[in-house]
Design a binder for these strands. Structure first.
Lengths: 176, 176
DNA sequence: TGTAGGATGTTATATCATAACATGTCAAGA
DNA sequence: TCTTGACATGTTATGATATAACATCCTACA
């Protein structure tokens, strides 16, 4: 569908077009995750840890089978449930998110900071960024309240153009 | 997973817990759709028409294969693409929506009224209601703008409890 | 009346996800 | 120390969702 290596939006995947400090990504998140899970009586076992690491390293949304492939290559199980279980565990514990539009998963970049994330998905380069969703969650909660519905979890995914790909699609005015 | 026939939330599926006039649903929407498509040079062919009707009658989210089954029983094609194509056509033309969390589709209840819908999905009875998403879209657009992202389409799906099922889960206080 | 576009249908296969069960690990209590 | 129960990991097998590729058939219109 698209070759990330040739896409300006993906050429700097470590930015993912939302400002954040890459140096913190993998190690710090991993350390944070461990502490956070321990507090909840949960364990960051080898598969789970490695799965989170894989998502953090990829720094983009990965399908369950992509994750499985990497896990299998490192001596973990070779069957789908291995990946799905680890991914579900991470999601339930706020360490990863599921991007339904892409049938894929990404590491959460702000674990712990209780949040209702909104995702921005570039339709050209497939880059995914996590946007603060507090205001959106508020608006959604209010709309729901009007019809007596209680929101427990929300999926907010926007499809569009990331900064880099906007340049491709709509070149600077005046330049044919 | 759940038997709708025994769920109070589904016992009145024609309400879908969002107030609307059922009598308008099928016929009026269908008529509106025809006009609207003609204006855009699109055709509401038999399969497409019947597919929309099926969604309108079901008055809840249906999987592509559910739709296919009904179409096949009425003499239309028996293969998945038949249903997927009709559903995609309807979605592209604002006559149906895809509910990603359920891998399902619903008829749009307000075609024409250019809208960015938000869906409220009951986790107990699976009822789906379309909530006005204008405020949400606005909040999303603003959050995206901050990181230079241009939103083209958005998926907003809330999982939670519909009014009827809220009663089951959290009985009136004082009644053990 | 020929022809081009679009709609419908097919076969075949890709992709995503989970049910059900067997085995392994480890810590708390008998 | 032994046992047992909870949980994690692994497997096989299958289910569910979705699309690619191509054949046929309408239908508008030059």
């Amino acid at each position: 569908m698209h070759d990330p290596s040739t896409c300006p939006g993906c050429a700097q995947p470590d930015l993912a077009f939302a400002p954040h400090d890459h140096s913190r990504c993998a190690d710090d998140v991993l350390a944070l995750a461990e502490v956070q899970l321990a507090q909840g009586g949960q364990r960051l076992t080898p598969v789970r840890r490695r799965t989170l690491q894989i998502l953090l390293e990829a720094h983009r949304a990965l399908g369950a089978y992509d994750v499985l492939e990497r896990l299998a290559a490192e001596g973990f199980g070779h069957q789908p449930p291995v990946a799905y279980r680890a991914l579900e565990f991470l999601e339930e514990n706020g360490l990863a998110h599921r991007i339904r539009r892409l049938n894929a998963f990404t590491a959460c970049m702000h674990p712990g900071e209780l949040h209702a994330p909104a995702f921005l998905i570039c339709r050209i380069c497939n880059a995914v960024a996590e946007a603060p969703g507090a205001a959106i969650g508020l608006a959604l909660g209010q709309a729901a309240k009007k019809v007596g519905f209680t929101v427990e979890r929300a999926t907010v995914e926007a499809l569009g153009l990331c900064p880099a790909c906007t340049v491709i699609e709509r070149p600077v005015r005046g330049v044919a």
